[in-house]
Design a protein around this nucleic acid. Structure first.
Lengths: 116, 116
DNA sequence: TGTCATGTGTACTACATGGTACACGATTTT
DNA sequence: AAAATCGTGTACCATGTAGTACACATGACA
């Protein structure tokens, strides 16, 4: 699924229950030209900037990290976290590359519960 | 320490023991114009592309992840790892943001030792 | 003393990014 | 039937990115 198709789908789902989710009105609410949003949804242009993806995510009730990934980007705050300690996080991520989801979840849970 | 100063410093250290580490010769070995490397080292231009940073790291025997971080970038392979499972890694990284170094190291060690 | 390598200043460039502006025909609403 | 709304096509643009090309003055050195 491309970024555009995903957005179009999400927006149309909303539209079916709320007719303010037209291309024009959503575009206006997030502050871009309707024709631009239209092109985004048909993958006629590259996915928009991180800021615009976030606005879109908020508007459509979608997860920003997921949408950003579909847009080929990584959230700026995550980039900053990595850049603070690049070698440490580089090693960690490369270790976790092929780990199963539940392993990553359990690591996150351990840390959240503060047992370090 | 800026990217430029760090590179200049690293290169001059090498130069003191091996006179092939002049701006011109290093530039030639990594395939850029000498004037460009000169400007990079004096922070007169933004840090170069990821590819060039990597060549520079290899040439100077420095850690690529560290250099990339100084250049305000995150390694493309790490970005790809995150984009495979953006929500999972987003949560993990945000949890680890303020964790002490040793906690991150121990997590990496646990995973490496395969106990999941 | 002439040659050669060194670092750097100036000017320019190709391509990517992230959009805007506006008109048009089709459909819907009143 | 008129007015408003809809999605979209075409054209354009400002800024950023990642450099190249080349000349110049300086210092080493043989």
């Amino acid at each position: 699924m491309t970024f555009g198709k995903y957005i179009r789908n999400a927006r149309e789902n909303r539209l079916s229950e709320d007719r303010t989710f037209s291309v024009r009105q959503v575009a206006q609410r997030i502050g871009v030209e309707p024709s631009y949003l239209s092109k985004i949804e048909r993958d006629q242009v590259a996915p928009p900037s991180e800021a615009t993806v976030r606005l879109l995510a908020g508007e459509l009730g979608e997860d920003a990290d997921l949408l950003l990934a579909m847009a080929g980007k990584v959230s700026g705050d995550l980039r900053n976290i990595i850049m603070q300690r690049p070698q440490l996080f580089a090693e960690l991520l490369r270790q976790l590359k092929d780990a199963p989801d539940h392993a990553i979840e359990s690591v996150a849970r351990e840390i959240r519960d503060g047992d370090w």
